[in-house]
Amino acid sequence: MVSADSTKPTCPVCNQADQVKTMQAAYNSGVARCAPPDMPTRNVSMMKPVTVCGLFIGICLFLIITLIGGLGSNFPQILQLILLVITLILIVTALAVSYWSFQRVVRGDNEAVELYPAWDKATAQWKSLYYCQRDDAVFDPKTNTQISNNQLASLRASATQAIKSELQAATQH
């Protein structure tokens, strides 16, 4: 029977395999620098414009119910008509703002989806690395070389860097 230690690669620093862990095991045991790459996401807020439009519609509906419904014929017809037109304009505006907000969210999701291949590549590379607990070293068993903290940080931030480079390219055009 083959033991689990014989399948582990040896550390390039100490040339032993007894303290070698996968990156996931090292991260789970509390080694923060062995964290996996962050999944690309977009946080697009739509609550503020939708809430403001809803508040305006609520105010107009309240005025229609109380002023027109409560006072009946004592309220001048022209003011009733103006209030009705303003309310209809605000309802249509709220629908347009809601549509615009949802389109921003969908566009943000699509931009994040476009970055998934870069994240998949970084995650696959991260999964191929190992951590030696004895030497506190991360290494690549394929090349048998130690990975520096800067290289780990750039691997973790590769999807985030792709987001920043795409945003800079979009603003330049």
Rank of each mutant, 00 (worst) to 15 (best):
Q161E: 12
L115K: 04
P117C: 09
A159P: 03
I57S: 07
L90C: 09
S3I: 02
A170P: 00
W119P: 02
Q172D: 09
S101W: 10
K164C: 00
W119D: 01
T145I: 06
P141R: 00
G30R: 09
A169D: 05
Y131D: 03
D120F: 15
N144P: 00
F56R: 11
S29E: 14
D135T: 03
D18R: 13
L83S: 01
D140I: 01
I59L: 15
Q80G: 13
P141M: 00
Y116T: 13
L95R: 07
L115F: 02
L152W: 00
T145M: 06
A153T: 06
R134H: 10
I65K: 09
S128N: 13
I65T: 11
N74Y: 10
S154A: 07
T10S: 08
C60R: 04
T66P: 00
V85T: 05
V2M: 11
D136S: 14
I89E: 01
N74W: 09
Q24W: 05
A124D: 14
T145W: 01
V138N: 07
P141V: 00
S98T: 14
P49M: 11
A169E: 08
P36D: 07
I68L: 08
N43C: 06
K142R: 03
L152N: 00
Q168C: 01
N28K: 10
Q80D: 02
K121R: 13
P40R: 05
V97W: 10
V113F: 14
C14M: 02
S98R: 09
T145P: 00
G69F: 13
A169N: 07
V13R: 11
D135C: 14
I163C: 01
I68V: 14
A122I: 12
K8S: 05
G54E: 04
K21P: 00
W119S: 02
A25H: 06
T51I: 11
G70V: 11
A118Q: 12
P117E: 09
V13F: 03
L88F: 11
R33Q: 08
D136M: 09
A122H: 08
V2G: 07
I147C: 02
A118F: 06
I78M: 07
W119T: 03
T22E: 03
L155T: 08
S6C: 04
V138D: 05
Y27G: 03
K8Y: 07
I78T: 08
I64K: 06
F102Y: 15
S148P: 01
F102I: 12
N149P: 00
Y130S: 06
G30W: 11
Q24F: 07
A159V: 04
I65H: 06
S3Q: 04
I86F: 10
Y27A: 15
I59E: 02
A159Q: 02
G72P: 07
P49E: 10
